[in-house]
């Protein structure tokens, strides 16, 4: 199987998986517990989720390591177990997917604010990412996915940590934007053009956005990214903005909505399409069909959505 970079370079479009947290909660993750604690206590849950997404047609399956950096795990008193927590997450997905899909290691924010705005130094954050990513690489992941970042300095530290440890590993990096009257910015004030420049310079192979938005905004974000960089793009949308109905949380966008979005993302030139919060295996299945239909159409085909 060729690597992610080679396939994106040939113009192929890859489908990533959907939400993790909601599926963990449905399988008994307790409120207030670290989602990554399940990696050690109940790895069969991770296998179950990986299998659902693999069967739905995803080619990139993420590990349950979003909050598995030592700085983030420290909140739960688990910092000392970071290496084994990361290794267990990779092993569970690998057992399930073999070489039928890429295992992509999720690396989320440290949860700390960097100096001078907060109290954490860049070197502490870098060390934390180095430890996590070294464990992920050792366990044999196919890609590192730095995601849901809002601070460009922190995002760059994570990408640089991966690059320092391996020049060969594909590194994907996404940030979370919100619409403002002056365009899309992260809450820390990072624009899409600044994100492209900063992430590419730090060594990312794919850049893009995840979380925070439903499909309509994500398509707009993807188009903006396309104008700002030649790197392949990665987009993982929420299934809309969650609503509360009779005490139950509901994501409004149906599998059909996200299939439609996938066609628009294809047309916008996105290389890796996936889902974030609220995206279920059913959504991924519908997105699989949309991407396959799109791939059958030849360039210039009038039926193509462009």
């Amino acid at each position: 199987m060729d690597g992610i970079r080679a396939r994106c370079g040939r113009g192929e479009v890859l489908l990533a998986d959907g939400a993790m947290g909601s599926l963990l909660m449905a399988r008994g993750l307790e409120k207030g517990a670290a989602p990554e604690s399940l990696n050690l206590s109940r790895p069969e849950v991770l296998e179950d989720i990986a299998r659902l997404y693999l069967e739905a047609g995803a080619e990139i399956i993420q590990t349950n390591t979003f909050g598995a950096s030592p700085l983030k795990l420290a909140k739960y008193g688990l910092a000392g177990r970071a290496a084994e927590i990361n290794a267990a997450a990779v092993a569970a997905v690998r057992r399930t997917v073999g070489d039928k899909a890429y295992v992509s290691a999720s690396v989320g924010p440290s949860g700390r604010l960097l100096l001078p705005f907060g109290d954490t130094s860049e070197s502490d954050v870098l060390d934390s990412f180095l430890l996590q990513i070294a464990a992920l690489l050792k366990a044999g992941v196919d890609a590192i996915c730095v995601e849901t970042m809002t601070d460009l300095t922190e995002a760059r530290l994570a990408v640089q940590a991966a690059r320092r440890l391996s020049s060969a590993i594909p590194v994907m990096a996404t940030m979370t934007f919100e619409p403002t009257p002056r365009g899309f910015f992260t809450i820390m004030g990072v624009s899409i053009v600044a994100a492209c420049r900063g992430l590419e310079e730090a060594g990312a192979d794919l850049v893009g956005s995840n979380c925070g938005n439903g499909s309509a905004q994500m398509v707009a974000i993807a188009r903006e990214f396309r104008k700002c960089t030649r790197l392949p793009l990665l987009i993982q949308s929420n299934a809309g903005i969650p609503e509360l109905r009779q005490g139950q949380v509901r994501y409004p966008e149906t599998p059909d909505c996200m299939a439609k979005m996938s066609r628009e993302l294809l047309a916008a030139g996105v290389s890796v399409i996936g889902g974030c919060c609220g995206t279920t295996p059913d959504h991924i299945r519908a997105m699989r069909r949309a991407i396959d239909d799109g791939a059958k159409m030849k360039p210039g085909d009038p039926a193509q959505v462009r």
Partner: peptide, 15 residues
């Protein structure tokens, strides 16, 4: 609130 400034500005102002 109206996105004219971002979080870093707020944190510095708070300091």
């Amino acid at each position: 609130r109206v996105h004219e400034i971002f979080l870093p500005d707020v944190l510095l102002a708070a300091k």
